[in-house]
Amino acid sequence: MQALDFEYMLGLVPVILGYVPLTLGMAAAGMVCALVLAALLAVERVIRVPVLDWLVVLFISFFRGTPLLVQLFLFYYGLPQVVSFLTRIDGVTAAILGLTLHFAAYMAESIRAAIIGVDRSQWEAAQSIGMTQWQLMLRIILPQAARVAAPTLVNYFIDMLKGTSLAFTLGVTEMMGAAQKEAAGSFRYFEAFLVVAVIYWVMVEALSQGQKWLETYLNKAFVR
């Protein structure tokens, strides 16, 4: 057995860190898009627009029912063969799109559950002062649902952050792709992937701290 080459690992850290912005960027873009889409899907599931409801159910079913990797391959390698203008989509965009659709399906379900959990009196009070459905949703119901859904949504965000490593399979050189290239030159696979693992781990730990702050913030109205 070969000893760990710490010097090599330390040297690799700044190289991999250079790709952190891309990873965070993909995750952040994916999360923002997924949250918006998930909120729309969830609201639709609650108010149930005819026909549209059926499509939303189908959407959620498909994106929850198939692996993320399969979805990414399907959209990046498969779809352009059928729909020609998609060939222009690059790996980063495809990864963000795939992560968005995949995680929106999951998050829609937890947001829907949180919306249903908001007390009926909150809907009635908002209606009684003459709010439109949109105002009621955006200003009263969703903010209260956010508090309930926040822990699971952060969980999905963590999952998404790690999921960006799959962009590597679409030819994107992100953290995982960079490590793979470095290791291919040095044959020190274990060290390279260990560095990647530790950096992911540290990022997720930092997010968990952020989660505590977020939950405190969302709970401030409910402290006696």
Binding site: A125, Q127, S128, I129, G130, R147
Partner: peptide, 21 residues
């Protein structure tokens, strides 16, 4: 909406917006 905007409603269970001061 017009009727609702011409009336103020006070609820038995107060029904204050829980996320607002």
């Amino acid at each position: 909406l017009g009727l609702r905007r011409r009336t103020g409603f006070v609820f038995q269970n107060y029904a204050l917006f829980a996320n607002k001061t």
